[in-house]
Design a protein around this nucleic acid. Structure first.
Lengths: 344, 344
DNA sequence: TTGTACGCGTTATCAA
DNA sequence: TTGATAACGCGTACAA
């Protein structure tokens, strides 16, 4: 602030008046000050402001820990942070001006570091945080993870595990469905291709015939998936799904045609909330995403950095948990006709 | 801090050493200081600490605004707050020590005010915030709302509306299912009884025969509901559901018995996320809870108070939105046999 | 082991 | 309309 004042040839209070609009200032001096601010990239310090004004400008969102209403990841992160004397502030960020958002976050002193959700392969927020020299931890991974702290779901091992579990039951024709984020704001989101690749690798390694489908989000994709399987992979005896909305439509169509899950077709879900499969009939076996664990690990890793840890990057992959129900999984039916043989 | 120091007969820095464990202090003096702290209820000011130590101890959780991963209410609140220069910090709170939590929140200067989620009829957080003289806004309502700012769902009008919509289609035997939170941490949660009451009133007023069921959470409740309806209210031609988990089981059982939705039975959901009904087959008509609007309104009301507004309390009730699909609703079937007449 | 005093970056009061 | 300066509440060299 003093630097701005010097540069504009005014006193520090005048700068304050301009920044806050507290008192009238001549247009000319206001302009000079604004220039100085821009040139220096000055941002008022939120902490000092809070101390001087006796107002933090922070709103607390009190939520009872008993009922899991919030995203479990967020909840775990908030809890882990508080356990270590930190607070978690929500920072919604529009991708189109990640730059400004991130620098302001750090320069104003609001936060010491950041946790990044929904990381894409090339994530601008990462660039900005690095420039700002602010510690951060990714939930997910960028393409280049050199020297970066992250925690992510171990899609590779989870996919291999899911396939292996099916293979152990005699399945030899397995289909995979993932979400297609192309053309959406989430394009560049890594998990779907990662799982596709892992699926292809694991299928090859275990001599399974793998069939892979990408479908956009939305409930319509379930029925579409059924059609595709019937037309293009009718010998499929098991479906691995990492698609939020496909399962309902899929099971509905199958049921109408007389395909019985799991007798005729096994279905498992990958990396979904634990509760996602429970509502279906039969309950879908779900390799549940370790949301709480990721939230906790990420937060703890970040706090370690904030407290000066110079340890090598935390790069943790957590596999999804094994299904708690197996109602949707059965041994591969021998001699089952192709799905296309069931009545339409 | 000075007061603590005086009372303990030491200097202010010694107090700091004790509070932070920065330097060794004789056990005796430490004890004297601790006593003074307790007696005075001293809590170190987080803002001053942040300024002096150059560390805010705040972690930012960066989430892209594009993908609605978080609770829509929370997201809307965070966004509305930032639009007005405030930040939203997540404050998970255990009901069993709401007192300590809330006072520490305010006394440490971390937050200027609070938003309360999952409000119960007698909510200790409210008592504490009042004592602390901190502005707050409820999402929901306590029993006594005298002078309290709140925004809530208008369960009364939404329930009446839902019933009226069914009545207009000729339904005269309607059943309601709500969640039973008795014996759970959420006991004392107001919405279920409110809706029951509104349902009873509206049924009476419109000459409808209303049947009402309470069931605990969990997927098992859907099948239980079906059994109950078949046994106790077989003439029901429409179900109003404000139960998170009941619909899947209900439709599954009905389908197995040959009951066709909506031909034989109409189903609507009350106060659920907009997407909740879309996954079923047919999609369940949903009176969607106005989560974003509540988040925004609550935040704006709180900020108004923080900025000194002396206006009378904001007490807003927002009805749920009309369903965007009606696939699960049809005119009441005339001459349909009782549900108990369908094959088991 | 304890105390003194300065600095953190603002806001706000009062004077000019 | 602008400037000087005292808070704001704490951390921490440095001194004792």
């Amino acid at each position: 602030m003093q630097q701005v004042a010097d540069r504009a040839g005014v006193s520090i209070s005048t700068v304050s008046f301009v920044v806050n609009g507290t008192k009238p200032v001549t247009p000319e001096t206001r302009e000079r000050i604004q220039e100085a601010i821009d040139e220096l990239g000055y941002r008022r310090n939120a902490v000092a402001r809070a101390l001087a004004s006796q107002r933090s400008r922070v709103i607390a969102l009190l939520f009872p820990l008993l009922e899991h209403q919030l995203n479990p990841f967020v909840e775990a992160a908030a809890t882990a942070a508080r356990a270590k004397g930190y607070n978690l502030v929500l920072w919604p960020i529009r991708n189109d001006n990640a730059a400004a958002e991130v620098t302001s976050l750090i320069k104003t002193g609001i936060a010491d570091g950041a946790l990044l959700m929904e990381v894409t392969l090339e994530d601008e927020r990462v660039t900005r945080l690095r420039e700002a020299a602010a510690p951060f931890v990714l939930i997910g991974r960028t393409r280049d993870t050199e020297g970066i702290d992250y925690v992510d779901i171990d899609f590779e091992s989870t996919t291999a595990r899911a396939l292996a579990d099916l293979v152990a039951l005699g399945h030899r024709e397995v289909s995979l469905v993932v979400e297609d984020n192309d053309g959406t704001p989430l394009s560049g989101y890594a998990p779907p291709p990662r799982v596709e690749q892992a699926f292809a690798d694991a299928a090859l390694a275990s001599g399974v015939h793998g069939f892979s489908v990408r479908l956009p989000r939305g409930p319509a994709s379930g029925e579409r998936l059924a059609e595709i399987l019937i037309a293009e992979a009718p010998r499929t005896t098991a479906v691995i799904s990492m698609h939020r909305d496909a399962n309902f439509g899929l099971t509905n169509v199958l049921r109408r045609r007389g395909v019985v899950v799991p007798r005729d077709l096994s279905i498992v879900m990958l990396s979904a909330p634990e509760s996602a499969g429970a509502v279906l009939d039969p309950a879908i076996a779900t390799y549940a995403q370790p949301a709480e664990e990721l939230g906790r690990l990420a937060t703890e890793a970040l706090i370690a950095r904030l407290e000066g840890s110079q340890a090598p990057p935390t790069q943790v992959l957590v596999p999804c948990a094994a299904p708690s129900t197996h109602a949707s999984v059965a041994p591969a039916p021998s001699g089952r006709p192709g799905l296309d043989a069931f009545p339409a």
